[in-house]
Design a protein around this nucleic acid. Structure first.
Length: 480
RNA sequence: GGCGGCAUAGCCAAGUGGUAAGGCAGCGGUCUGCAAAACCGCUAUUCACCAGUUCGAAUCUGGUUGCCGCCUCCA
């Protein structure tokens, strides 16, 4: 029951101790809604989704805040290109974001604030920073003075002096230090703007998160997460702003997920290899995507390839296969309650998850359980002893519990395979009625031990990519 | 230039001091009329390389090589 988390701030795994016993406050940087979500967004969302699920499974009341950045230079530019206003553009991509996340079984955050709805919170913090001498207004803009914050660089491990040497950064004569960053940007004509003591404008990117996190989680809170790329400058700047303004520590544990590469290459606009979630889901099962993403440790980079995805698909079928056998066994009634507590496998799974959310190891345990289930079922195709029944009821429960943490096994096993078939039929252009007819014909042939005819039919079906499975209770089939 | 990460079987991958999880692929076997599925067995005396610490290292230290990320919008 003790969870250890790798904290980017200390570069160590630490025992998680919440600020308030039994509660977790977690803030994760959400998307800037100017474009469709790609597989990298999916990874971040899935990783923190699982974190939230694991905390809840351990009895914590989780307040998960994930924001939308719905005003920003990129949104303004994109909206101008498309000839629409920023709000319409942002709303469109927020809707799309939800569609993608729902498809991936990523649960909603507890609170999902939009930057534009918290301008007052942001303005208040900027004002405090100016009062404290940690920020200065120039024209209609406000900058944070990095020199005013001693701890600047503590998250990313950078020193201002070191960075200055190799800096590739535009020199703005109005900044006191080249690393000073905008807290408030004055509006140009036609840009969305809000009134402020410094004139009409909009918040800088970094200050939004300080505003929204303090609003919903307090000035000090438990966990702040996001992609590794956000460590510098975004999260570094958040710490500087928030701690300079409030004088108390900001987030206590910093959690960062690694990137998704595509065929060994970094995803980038210039390479044109951005993979959108919606495109991936057109080919692969959403739970296969989750299984693929969670099959590596969340901090490691992961390589998206066709082979890796196909393997994840096969693995998912194996898990569902075991589930289907349990569901259809006459001794195992759906909804049958197992002995409380969970078995050996759940215990091992739990230990893996407690150790910095080691989903890869957890999935290994899940497969051990799948094998144990199949083995038991193989040797007892007839009746089960009461002991075996109890064991399998417990196994089924543990399997589902693991699935609930990983966000897989959301479907009924029977429906999963029927769905696969339906999808396969569509792609292979095969008439299911014809398949059933051929199976019936083959059944008759087999009854008369006409193996030649039976095999002919099977070959015929195989040519259409239909694979037969003769089981004790009849012949099933699937698309290969 | 500064900061950080990684290197484990054919492929993917877990494992941070006690003698190499798991998945995919392959081979052999059980089951089957034959298959499919499932199960069983086999597939790294070894964890990039070199030194060192230790009773003991894939795991710690130093060095070498190779790959990658961040430092600019980025999950």
């Amino acid at each position: 029951m003790s969870i250890r988390i790798y904290n980017t701030l200390t570069r160590k795994k630490e025992l998680f101790e919440p600020l308030t016993p039994g509660q977790v406050g977690m803030y994760v940087c959400g998307p800037t809604v100017y474009d469709s979500c790609h597989i990298g967004h999916a990874r971040s969302a899935v990783v923190f989704d699982v974190l939230g699920r694991w905390f809840e499974a351990n009895g914590y009341a989780v307040t998960y805040v994930r924001n939308f950045t719905d005003v920003d230079d990129k949104i303004i530019r994109r909206a101008a290109e498309l000839g629409m206003d920023c709000k319409t553009l942002a709303d469109r991509y927020i809707t799309e974001f939800y569609a993608d996340m729902d498809a991936l079984f990523v649960r909603r955050a507890t609170i999902e604030p939009k930057a534009t709805e918290h301008i007052d919170d942001i303005v208040r913090i900027v004002s405090v920073l100016i009062e404290k001498g940690a920020a200065y207004a120039v024209g209609g803009d406000v900058y944070f003075a990095v020199d005013a914050f001693d701890g600047y660089g503590k998250l990313s491990g950078r020193k201002l002096e070191d960075m200055a040497a190799g800096a590739r950064i535009e020199v703005d004569a109005r900044k006191r230090n080249p690393f000073d960053f905008a807290l408030w940007k004055s509006a140009k004509p036609g840009e969305p703007s809000w009134d402020s003591p410094w004139g009409p404008g909009r918040p800088g990117w970094h200050i939004e998160c300080s505003g929204m996190s303090s609003r919903f989680l307090g000035r000090t809170f438990d966990i702040h997460g996001g992609g590794k790329d956000l460590i510098f400058p975004h999260h570094e700047n958040e710490i500087a702003q928030s701690e300079a303004a409030f004088g108390v520590p900001f987030a206590r544990y910093w959690v960062h997920n690694g990137f998704v590469n595509i065929n060994h290459e970094k995803m980038s606009k210039s390479l044109g290899n951005f993979l959108l979630i919606r495109d991936i889901l057109a080919t692969y099962h959403p739970e296969a995507v989750r299984l693929f993403l969670l099959g590596n440790h969340y901090r490691s980079p992961v390589d998206f390839t066709r082979q890796a995805m196909e393997e994840a698909g096969v693995a998912l079928e194996k898990i569902y296969g075991a589930m289907a056998r349990l569901d259809t066994h006459r001794n195992i009634v759906p909804g049958q309650a197992p002995a409380p507590g969970g078995g050996q496998h759940w215990h091992r799974f739990s230990r893996a998850m407690d150790d910095d959310f080691n989903t890869a190891q957890g999935i290994g345990v899940l497969f051990d359980l799948v094998r144990a289930v199949n083995r038991t079922l193989d040797v007892t195709d007839g009746e089960l002893s009461p002991g075996q029944t109890a064991l399998l009821v417990a196994a089924r429960s543990d399997l589902q519990r693991m699935g609930d943490i990983l966000g897989i096994l959301n479907c009924d096993a029977h429906d999963f395979f029927e769905g696969k078939k339906a999808q396969g039929l569509e792609q292979a252009a095969v008439d299911p009625a014809w398949v059933e007819q051929m199976i019936a014909e083959r059944r008759d042939a087999r009854k008369e031990k006409d193996w030649k005819r039976a095999d002919e039919i099977r070959t015929l079906l195989a040519e259409k990519n239909v694979i037969l499975e003769d089981r004790p209770d009849g012949t099933g089939w699937k698309i290969g």
